[in-house]
Structure formats: C-alpha cells, structure tokens
Measured scan of single mutants.
Amino acid sequence: MASQGTKRSYEQMETDGERQNATEIRASVGKMIDGIGRFYIQMCTELKLSDYEGRLIQNSLTIERMVLSAFDERRNKYLEEHPSAGKDPKKTGGPIYKRVDRKWMRELVLYDKEEIRRIWRQANNGDDATAGLTHMMIWHSNLNDTTYQRTRALVRTGMDPRMCSLMQGSTLPRRSGAAGAAVKGVGTMVMELIRMIKRGINDRNFWRGENGRKTRSAYERMCNILKGKFQTAAQRAMMDQVRESRNPGNAEIEDLIFLARSALILRGSVAHKSCLPACVYGPAVASGYDFEKEGYSLVGIDPFKLLQNSQVYSLIRPNENPAHKSQLVWMACNSAAFEDLRVLSFIRGTKVSPRGKLSTRGVQIASNENMDAMESSTLELRSRYWAIRTRSGGNTNQQRASAGQISVQPAFSVQRNLPFDKPTIMAAFTGNTEGRTSDMRAEIIRMMEGAKPEEMSFQGRGVFELSDERAANPIVPSFDMSNEGSYFFGDNAEEYDN
C-alpha cells in the first residue's frame, strides 16, 4: 500500500510504541512475548500442572481467558453494579484439565481477579502490559475465525453469508486497541457500523446529549479505520460520505453494504499476525530463551520457528480426527482463516481442507461434555516452508469459486491468482447506482469489472525454506488448481455463540 510509510507498523501498534527502528520493534515485541511466557509459567505453578498438562491447549485457553477477564475493567465495573446470582464479580476462573488415573478430569478453578492481575503485572515488570493482553485477544479471535462461520451475524446486519472472507476479527472485544483495529476485516468494521446506525434509528437519543457526542466521535473513528483499509480513492470518498452524514440511517447502511461487497474484489488491507497460545510461549521462556534479547516478529519467520520446536497437546472428542484438529489450530496460529487453501497447503506441506470436510468441533470443551471418553493427542503445528504475512489485500483475480465463501483475504505475501467468483459478486451490483453516491458507485463498479483474471497478485513473492531466515531465496510455489480455494466452501461450520 502506498501510504505504508505514514502508518505505524503493526509491531508498533502491538507494543504501543512511538516510531521505533526494526531492532527496537523486535525487542519490544519480544518483551511482550516474554511477559506472556513468564505469566503462563507462574500460572502453571499456581495450578500445580504437570509439564504435559501445561502444554494442553484447553488449559492455555482457560488461563488466557482468566487474565483477560481480570483486566476487563468495563465488564468488571458492570458486574459490580449489576450483581447477578451466583456470579462473584471479583473472581474469575474456568475449567482446568488434569490427568488422573490414566483419565482426563475437569476441575473448575476460581481465583481472585486481583490475584491474577498481581501475577500478570509481576510477570511483566510491574506494568499492565496491555500489548500482551491484546495479543491474547487476537489469538482467540484468530481461533474463532478458523472455527466458526459468522453466517447468522452477517444475515442479521443485512449482509450476504458468502462475504465471510471479510469477517476477520469479528469476535475481537471493543477494547483491543490499535492492534485489534489493524486485524479487523472490512466486513467486521461494516458490521460494527451498521449495528451502531441501527441503534440510532431505533433509539432517538442515541446521537443526542453528552453521551451522543461520545457516540458520534466513536462512529467517526470507526469510519476512519474502515476508510484506511480501502485502497481505492472511490471507496475512500464513499467512506467520507458515510462519516460526514448528519443523521446516519438506511442510506448509510446501503452504502456500507455496497462497500463491503466491493471489497470482495477491490480488497481492503487487513493486517495478519501470528499470535500463538500462551502454552507455546511459556515452555520456550522456561527453556531459557530470551525473546527480548533475541527479538521477535509476528509477521516473519519467528512464529514458524517457534511452532517448529513446540509440543502442544489437545483434548480430542471420541469421533474427532486429531489431524483435522491440528489443521484448525495451525490455521489459527498463522492467522489464515480466509487465505486461499492452495497457498496454505503449499506452505504447510500437507493438504489443507475446507472447514466442512474437517471432523472436528471447536477447541474448547463445553462444561456439560462427558470427560470419560476424552483422549488427548499432539497437535501437528509444523510447516514445510515459511512466508511473510501481508497486510495488503493483493490485486484481484477471477477463479472458480464456491457456493460458500466467494473470495479470499490473503494472509501471506505469496504470488498467486486470487480466487473470487466474479459473476456471483457482480450480480449483486445491478441497477442500484442512484442517489448521492452514484458517481462513486459507478466508478467502483467500473474498477471491479476491469479486474483481470490473468493478473498475478504479489508478483514474484515466494515462500522460503525454514533454514532461509533472511528470506534470501524465494520459492514461487505451484498450486494444484483442481483443489478448492475457499475454506468455508459450501460450508456447515458451527455458528459462533458468545
């Protein structure tokens, strides 16, 4: 993207840094990872977990959730003011799984939030270390993106479920800051804005008074975040219109849905970061690795190297396929839920299948599930090659597409044709070009129609051997075009429920 120079890199967003050079960025990201790792080690000690239990991804998720809940100030305040039966607002906890007599047992633990905050700050040299908290939120978000298709949420806001490739980060909490905003897809931002506008339509006082002023500035800020994701002048001009509207209503909703559809071809720039579970960072720190000293990046080879040398386990339900569970977590670790499966298959070195073909449910185990038949197995999170994460949407291309997802959002900077089903997408653009945004709409449609099938995206960008740390010898991959490109292809993934 041309304006790259004016933006802070995501590592800076990730670490609240002012302008830093590459070495400083690597050190501050490393410091953040160190903090998460030290916190995780301490929690495993508190909970008396064995090494194996500490490497269980379900335990990692519970521990991450506990610290996120302990620092969720708004919710904590709300819980104190609106006490609900049987919930102690000062405590947080969740299921911890232990191996007892050759069987997995679930144990519900409860801790004072104050105590968890103390352990977290102690692991982070006394700081609140917001960057580390956001990092864990993005890992949870990436896992949700890989596990669930947001059909219901899309339909509720009037969008087409086939636009799911635009929904990265749709389950990120509001408090995820600049680093969170960077990884949100165009569809996620559109959905947040539509929800806001709908509230304004239904509630006369939404934009009024002292609160209304705050609401208005939040609305304009979200519009600017979305505008910054678009790469064409016409899309940005249309966002200006939406932002400046005196009284946002149905016309703005129409414009936003139009823009979301246009992003299936004229893709937005959305950041991709490899955020790993805390149970990967903990053992690495415990083994003596100093992330701050060595430096770390979320968008280069580092996460690949770390996963190459990590042992992570997962509980497996009786009829689940461990290899499929591994694929789910591998995609989440690489922030690749909406990437082209052919690119992923090449990088991973084994075939990556669409969601609907995987015999696996989510990673988390519900409290009512029976533990008797639970097994555990090693997650295979290694890769054959590594590639640089991208934040450009890439230019655009036609490809055989599917009944489910009709476009992709690249996660890796790797040369390819970008699949999208042009006739299906263009069919949504018939007729409606009147109104105050008509010239911009016409211009956007013209650009979409001009998108050429034979153009290559990320020209000359390749993948790298894991021994090639400096990215000196790019390998331009070859793809098996007979395979499906979309992950949520004609899909039956479970729906995400809060």
Rank of each mutant, 00 (worst) to 15 (best):
S269M: 09
T15C: 14
R156C: 06
V186Y: 04
S28T: 02
M105R: 06
S383R: 01
W139S: 08
I445M: 04
N492R: 15
L266A: 07
P318C: 11
S376C: 11
N224Q: 13
T396W: 12
S383P: 00
Y148M: 09
R8V: 00
Y219P: 01
A233S: 00
S467Q: 09
R391Y: 06
G30F: 10
R175F: 02
S60H: 01
G460H: 09
P419E: 12
T360Y: 08
A27K: 15
M238N: 08
S176N: 03
Y52A: 15
R355Q: 11
Y40E: 01
A471D: 03
N224D: 12
G268R: 01
D51L: 12
Y385Q: 06
A27I: 06
I119E: 07
W386L: 10
G187R: 05
T188G: 08
I444V: 15
D255R: 07
F488H: 03
R74W: 07
I445D: 02
D480C: 05
G288Q: 10
A471K: 01
K91I: 00
T15R: 00
M440N: 06
T6Q: 00
T437C: 14
M137E: 12
G187N: 01
Y385C: 06
Y52N: 12
A471E: 06
T15E: 12
A181K: 03
D160W: 12
G249M: 08
E294F: 04
D468Q: 04
A373H: 11
T92A: 11
Q308D: 02
L358C: 10
I257V: 06
T232Y: 10
S69Y: 07
R99P: 00
R199V: 11
L466Q: 13
E107A: 12
R99M: 06
M13I: 10
N334E: 06
Q327Y: 03
L49S: 06
S353L: 13
A2I: 00
K227C: 09
Q58Y: 11
E73M: 02
A179I: 05
H140F: 08
A387W: 04
L68V: 09
Y78W: 13
Q405I: 00
D160L: 02
F230M: 05
A493H: 12
A278E: 02
E434K: 12
R317C: 08
L259N: 11
D290V: 10
M239R: 01
A22R: 15
T430K: 10
G177V: 10
V329P: 07
G249L: 10
R436K: 10
K229F: 10
Q4K: 04
S176W: 02
I25D: 10
F489P: 01
R400V: 04
S457V: 08
V109L: 11
D72P: 04
E46W: 07
L379T: 05
S335T: 09
N417P: 11
N319H: 13
F291A: 11
E18Y: 10
S457N: 15
G169Q: 04
P477I: 10
C275V: 11
P173Q: 15
V183R: 03
N321C: 09
M191P: 01
F412R: 02
G169K: 12
R446N: 10
K90N: 14
Y487N: 09
N319L: 11
A251W: 06
G485R: 15
F230S: 04
S170P: 06
E24R: 11
